[in-house]
């Protein structure tokens, strides 16, 4: 049976904290990876897995009746491994093998090696098209499964994303929700300096989507946004999730002078400070 886990607000906040700790532990152990990109997405991923949204089935992760979460910004996969560990799919020891030779917990999601991964991503810009495919198939099969796709704000520069946005509207895919993790940074700097696509909301709106802008690091706001998205029955929903890259440990990152902190793990020292901060 595909069932959703539904924790209380306080429990959700605790789970988010636990997930943040895991993200830091596994990336520091790996010695590479993208902790800051993972941290901005924690509230959304926690709310999806533990706030009653993703119906999943541990006995059969590919259960056709499941809801889907596609992490299009695949470099943030530590958030997903951490959430799945928190959900009891994997042990701490297992996810601590992140990025090591032989480990299925690769640097980017590999659906061939982990049946909990909905897509093999890592080349940005492709997840929403896959989500459209899932949503079309679920509708054809008469399943009420919902598909969520998370993208980065930098990732939105890829043309394919906008092709998928148009397609989803054409088929009025109310069983599809796109979440833009708008953390304000991409690899080489602030998104406003590299390629400023703001405002996202009016762009989605112009494409005919139902659109909401939420405070994406507030659990309350995320829960409300996801509830509203589920209530829409005539078109796809876009959630512009305004977050901070590295959220949860910003006081630790601030002194480094790098608030993007893209694609690098915390040193052992910084990790210890971050874990203490999250205790």
């Amino acid at each position: 049976m595909a069932d959703a886990t539904k924790l209380s607000l306080n429990e959700l906040k605790d789970a988010a904290k636990a997930i943040r700790r895991l993200i830091i532990q596994i990336t520091t152990e790996a010695g590479s990876g993208h902790p800051s990109s993972s941290l901005s997405a924690v509230e959304v991923v926690t709310a999806l897995y533990f706030g009653g949204y993703l119906r999943h089935n541990k006995a059969n992760p590919r259960d056709p009746k499941r809801d889907r979460f596609i992490l299009s910004k695949g470099h943030a996969v530590p958030v997903l491994y951490a959430a799945l560990c928190q959900a009891g799919y994997y042990s701490f020891e297992q996810i601590m093998t992140l990025r090591k030779l032989g480990s299925p917990f690769e640097g980017h999601p590999n659906m061939k090696r982990l049946d909990t991964m909905e897509a093999s991503t890592g080349s940005l810009g492709q997840g929403l098209s896959l989500g459209v495919g899932h949503a079309l198939a679920c509708r054809l099969d008469g399943l009420d499964a919902h598909t969520y796709v998370m993208m980065g704000d930098g990732e939105m520069g890829e043309g394919q994303v906008w092709e998928a946005i148009a397609t989803a509207e054409k088929y009025k895919l109310s069983n599809l929700t796109a979440i833009v993790d708008q953390n304000g940074y991409q690899q080489t700097g602030a998104t406003k300096d590299v390629l400023d696509l703001k405002p996202f909301a009016s762009k989605f709106d112009a494409f005919g989507w139902h659109t909401q802008v939420i405070e994406g690091n507030s659990m309350e706001a995320v829960l409300e946004g996801l509830a509203k998205a589920r209530a829409v029955t005539d078109r796809p929903t876009a959630i512009v999730s305004q977050t901070k890259k590295g959220f949860g440990i910003l006081p630790i990152l601030e002194p480094t002078g790098d608030l993007n902190y893209h694609g690098k793990p915390l040193s052992k020292e910084l990790a210890e400070k971050a874990l203490a901060h999250l205790a």
Binding site: A30, S32, R99, G107, H108, N110, G122, S123
Partner: peptide
Amino acid sequence: IGEDGASQ
């Protein structure tokens, strides 16, 4: 390139 894996 190493740890990033096959997608990169």
